[in-house]
Design a protein around this nucleic acid. Sequence first.
RNA 1: GGCCCUAUCGUCUAACGGUCUAGGACGCAGCCCUCUCAAGGCUGAAAUACGGGUUCGAUUCCCGUUAGGGCUACCA
Length: 482
Amino acid sequence: MSTVRVRFAPSPTGYLHVGGLRTALYNYLFARKNAGTFILRIEDTDQTRYVPDAEQKLLDIIRWSGLTYDEGPDVGGPKGPYRQSDRIEIYRMYAQKLLDEGKAYYAFETPEELEAMRAEQERRGLSTKYDRRALKLRTDEVRAKLEAGVPHVIRLKVPDNVTITFTDIVRGTVEFSSDQLDDQVLIKSDGFPTYHLANVVDDHLMEISHVIRGEEWLPSTPKHVLLYEYFGWTMPQFAHLPLLLNPDKSKLSKRQGDVAVEDYKEKGYLPEALINFVALLGWNPGDERELFTLQELVQEFSLARVGKSGAVFNVEKLNWMNAEHLRRKASSEILPMLKEELARSRFSDRAFADEYLLMVIDAMRERISFVRDILAKSPYFFEAPSSYDADVVKKRWKKETAAHLTVLRDAFMKLNHPTREQYEAVLHATAQQLGIGNGQLIHPLRLALSGVGAGPGVFDLVAILGKEETIRRLTTAITKLS
RNA sequence: GGCCCUAUCGUCUAACGGUCUAGGACGCAGCCCUCUCAAGGCUGAAAUACGGGUUCGAUUCCCGUUAGGGCUACCA
């Protein structure tokens, strides 16, 4: 029984794609479930796409997501370095080995020449593929070019007419003909490796047991299989995950909405909810449960239950899930989040006691999907209403209402440190005294205090706002709405 | 174009040949609860792409068609 070692190997592009988060999650879950090791490896071999701070941002957002890794660029580990740009010599060495054994070769075409070649192939209705013109060069010609410093790449020499087969854990047996494969560039002219070489070399050196990655890699897997064979290395097991899709079923992309985990963080989604949601995109526990903590996912996860077809990223369901996770949190956990939202809002200059905010949270927690909804749906907890919802006024505020509320206000005034229950008793008594239904006081009271017709129970509202503020708002409403 | 992958309600999915009147969830609609709004409970509309096989029996296995997607870079 071999040990499980898996990796998430993102390239630092400046943000983490939610599809990448799902890939990271499945790797994490698989590792934790099987008492294995989860490795983070930075695949920064594309100099042209270098983005400053991208790696740090990536690390930060992974940390936010709650996925912890055992080996990685910032935590170290026995198989490092974990940043590919720090491993260039290693790749060059292995490329040289391939060169020596005739399994790879130098090529000297410029990007422009290659583009012209492809254009010509396309014009003639052929599939675009490197035509191996460099293979026609004699050894002395190659040596001369190298000595003259002509820019060059190293290409993989793909054998003719062989069938490359591998088993994918989610897809079963997959077959490719080598004739379809391009002589993949292994080392670019800047000396950096391409994904294909670096990935295979690192996975081997880091003793990766399972390669769990997105389906977009399926077509290049035969190239990787070939490399393992050329090097004489045992192959890891492959598991290609179904793609995450836009509503129009194309591969999830920017342009059609938010794809960066950072975007969702920014919008106020809980990491627990986002993790739970992407976990269910392509995997299910086999029963009807849907709400999971990370720990529960670890217990339940298995690659055998990963599906094959792409999944549309449906924000509606994510919103519901966020609300569910929010409800499961203790109010004390929500408190710092609410404070943060307040600090970023127009109420930033106001101070509220923790006990007060905690009461607000308890009153609102069943009514929101996001912490910031507390501000949006119930600003009246943070400032007196400046206007009254016209529809509600029309429906609830009758000509005699001002008089009724005045009686109620005066009754409230006589109270000494009243409880929620006392407010309720007083209102009931007042209604009886006035010979009206409780609703004829309750609805106008809510309107006076909040300016709107919806929200927590009025007695909770009154109790939270307190006697003084309640009376103040009642007085204002009586004046303004008369 | 070539190669590869995929195909159950609008969306996420269950079903691993019979228990299918095809189950659950989100969303949607209605009802109940109720001081409002939520939450909760109940109910409803909503799917096996199509055509051939295999089988006593196909959502499930095979083939084809169609549709969608991915890849086809000195990007990952």
